[in-house]
Amino acid sequence: DVAGRLTPVLLDGLREESLQLVSKLKDSSSSCAVDVSTMWWEAAGSRGLCVVTACESSVSLWKPLASDRWGKVYTWQLGEIPVIQIVPLPDTCNLVCIALGDLEIGEIRLLLYSSENDAFKQSLVKTGNIKAVLGLKDRRLVSSSRTMQEQQVEIVSLSETGRSKDGQTLMPPEETVLAFAEVEGMRDALVGTTAVNSIVVWNLKTGQLLKKMHVGYSYPASICHRAYSDSGLLFVVLSHPHAKESESCGNPAFRVIAFNPKTARSVGVMFSSLPPGHAGRYLEGDVKDASAVAVLTSGAVAVWDLLLGRCTALLPPDPEGSWALARWATTSACLLAGQQDGTVCLYRY
């Protein structure tokens, strides 16, 4: 019955690409879902991909059991400051970060499992008025934070037990950085999107701010999700929560833009808009490889193939509760979709 109700609506001619409900997990002790993610967890010599769910006051780790069921392994209890988001650390095991705060991030904590002691721990990584945070490869964390006078863009290295001593600062742009993305295939390159709709590029090794490039006035408050360099161009996948609807592009949720970093000129490569007849604007979403997913204001979840610029699947709002979260697992073959009541559904894509 549940599987039937959650079967995604496939769009015309795209039946080979669909979402198949694999399993559901529900934390009976929590009523709200703040965020969901995946992490690698290794214990007793066995390593597997686990699901991490966050509600305002706690974060839980779930491991797969037989028959597509999930069992809760551990719950980290947090203090009085609410959890805002999970910050996954790519290519790590037994480590995940979380951001806590009220309207904006006030602190970042590391949640970890020590296989030596068979113990779950947490430690404080950073405090401040933090505007954006991203987990980077090699157990690093980049964040932007503001004081009254200036912005600080900092990289923190993490050990298996918490914050390492050796940190690094990146040259800040004048405007506030609201999101980061590693440049795939370029170990030392990082991009960010700013409050005045610019893309900034850093050299992570030297901390230099290499370039600032404007995205365009039609797409305010763009957020970068993914970046890669190819043939001398920097391709950036952006979401547009406040884009204006146009006849030619509809209501674009995601755009792929090619920048020439030498000249700061850009061209739009692909728009990913909702198919005609579907209402709703982008609320929040995630990008992995060429797959993008977004929760819409209508309560639906939409999936796009960014190479085709085409919506490939749509999860309609559930009668028992609209969708609130959509995240790819560490591979784009698995989608985690969270409902407002805290239920998380896993789909094979």
Partner: peptide
């Protein structure tokens, strides 16, 4: 994309910008 839209393209843009940017 063509060079007329984007200007001259360099495969080594990252190294070139790193050499030019203030440190």
């Amino acid at each position: 994309c063509s060079e007329s839209d984007l200007g001259p393209i360099s495969l080594n843009w990252f190294e070139e910008l790193s050499a030019e940017a203030p440190s």
